[in-house]
């Protein structure tokens, strides 16, 4: 297990961010979680710009947990930006949201989300979901090899 690789959590709600961290911890996922409050900050990090200028852009997160309802820039826009850049377009992005609307699901997959997970209200179920997510995306799934830039 690549303990070094971080999980990028894009989530505006502090409570949700904290809950997610708690759930991941409870699910025994050891990867550090880096949380961004909005889409712009997330993109700055991913593209190594703004506050994150100078960061090695090829050092990509293991997985991005992306909320759809974000201030400033919606989750879908973040997703489109990720898929539009050859350096990071293979990044696994899991849409993690409250919504179960057909429209949202369709749009997420239209923008090439890897997965769409509805946040359950029941915390125990959330822990269960986190454990499965971790097992799949951090252990089973083999990411794309690093591209020579």
């Amino acid at each position: 297990m690549s303990n070094e690789q971080i999980i990028l959590l894009v989530e505006d709600s502090d409570a949700d961010a904290e809950l997610t961290a708690m759930a991941f911890q409870e699910a025994r996922i050891g990867n550090p979680i880096l949380r961004m409050r909005n889409g712009l900050a997330a993109l700055d990090y991913l593209f190594a710009q703004g506050a994150h200028a100078g960061r090695d852009v090829t050092d990509i997160p293991a997985v991005v947990l992306l909320d759809l309802n974000l201030p400033l820039m919606s989750g879908l826009e973040v997703l489109r930006a990720i898929r539009g850049d050859t350096r990071i377009r293979h990044l696994p992005v899991i849409v993690l949201t409250s919504s179960n609307e057909d429209k949202d699901r369709l749009e997420a997959y239209d923008h090439f989300a890897n997965s769409y997970v509805q946040k359950p209200v029941d915390y125990d179920q959330f822990v269960q979901a986190s454990r499965q997510l971790g097992l799949y995306w951090l252990v089973l799934n083999r990411p794309a090899p690093r591209r020579d830039v």
Binding site: T97, S99, Y123
Partner: peptide, 14 residues
């Protein structure tokens, strides 16, 4: 769907 569920999640989780 969004705004009512989020606080519920917090209530349950915390």
């Amino acid at each position: 769907s969004h705004d009512l569920r989020a606080p519920l999640r917090s209530i349950d989780g915390f």
